[in-house]
């Protein structure tokens, strides 16, 4: 079984700060990590490999530094890694990103037929959840998004059955491989990388593909040029006009403070009082 897992290198958003005056992202010193959602996809791929044998190939589009993210995945047990990296890809929105990644998957499948492509549910920076569906459509793969469990893989007949998170329940879907799965978070736990894997990963020669090597046919479809969306403005959230009405239990008893708050909100919002009276259980 040959599985391709797409990962994105993202800034560790827990550590991102926004400049209070210029409203720009302060990236300096913010470590880059593997998009946390993608690790659920990788772990699922590794489990399929444990079970059925085969190979897991990592794929990432990004700047040269993204090599580190791919090495991290090698340390967890992935077999091979391809970094699609070229200035021409800069400024890509999701449509242009899925075009480039689809071309690279096609290229990888020329080396060895691909059975499943995995992506994460979404990233923590762009956060659109659009790249997975985009790659699937471009490659004509069956699309399975928000997969919470892989129920059954029938290698002989190239069939797979999964559970997919939907509103109010779970869909059980059966489809044919090759397919593209976007893996839901919290569905598994990433394994530890043993020391020898880390050493192997550090030395691993990640393959770097330019746009030519990645098999890009139409250069008007990649990067900024191939992106229909235009970011027209970036700005900070507007502060609310007035600050909260503040009271402190230092100045009055908790009882007086809470009475005061309740009176105020019910005077200002009489319908709220009615709603509460209708529902409350005293």
């Amino acid at each position: 079984m040959h599985i391709v897992v797409c990962i994105k290198q993202v800034p560790d958003s827990a550590q991102i700060r926004v400049h209070p005056v210029t409203n720009t992202i302060m990236r300096q010193g913010v470590p880059a990590i593997v998009n946390p959602y993608d690790l659920f996809a990788l772990e699922e791929a590794l489990r399929l490999k444990d079970q059925f044998g085969g190979k897991v190939t990592m794929l990432c589009m990004g700047p040269p530094q993204a090599e580190d993210a791919l090495k991290k995945c090698i340390s967890f047990g992935a077999d091979d890694a391809v970094l699609v990296t070229d200035r021409a890809f800069a400024g890509a929105d999701t449509l242009a990103t899925s075009y480039a990644l689809a071309a690279a998957v096609r290229q990888i499948s020329r080396e060895q037929k691909v059975d499943i492509v995995f992506t994460g549910k979404q990233t923590i920076d762009g956060d659109t959840a659009q790249v997975g569906p985009g790659i699937a459509k471009r490659l004509g793969l069956q699309l399975l998004t928000y997969v919470s469990r892989i129920a059954e893989v029938d290698i002989e007949n190239d069939r797979i059955t999964v559970e997919r998170r939907a509103e109010g329940g779970v869909q059980v879907l059966r489809t044919a491989m090759p397919c593209l799965i976007t893996m839901l978070e919290g569905t598994n736990e990433m394994r530890f990388a043993p020391l020898e894997n880390m050493i192997h990963a550090a030395r691993y020669p990640v393959r770097k593909w330019s746009k030519e090597a990645a098999g890009i046919e139409d250069i008007t479809k990649i990067g900024l040029k191939g992106s229909p969306t235009v970011v027209s403005k970036v700005f900070g959230p507007t502060p609310r006009a007035e600050k909260a009405l503040m009271q402190s239990v230092e100045d009055a008893s908790p009882r007086d403070v809470t009475l005061n708050v309740i009176q105020k909100i019910f005077t200002q919002h009489p319908t709220l009082e009615r709603d509460i009276l209708a529902k409350a259980t005293v």
Partner: peptide
Amino acid sequence: TFGGSLLCTIMT
């Protein structure tokens, strides 16, 4: 964007 710390306006 960026976890809500900024907003951005996008047009097609």
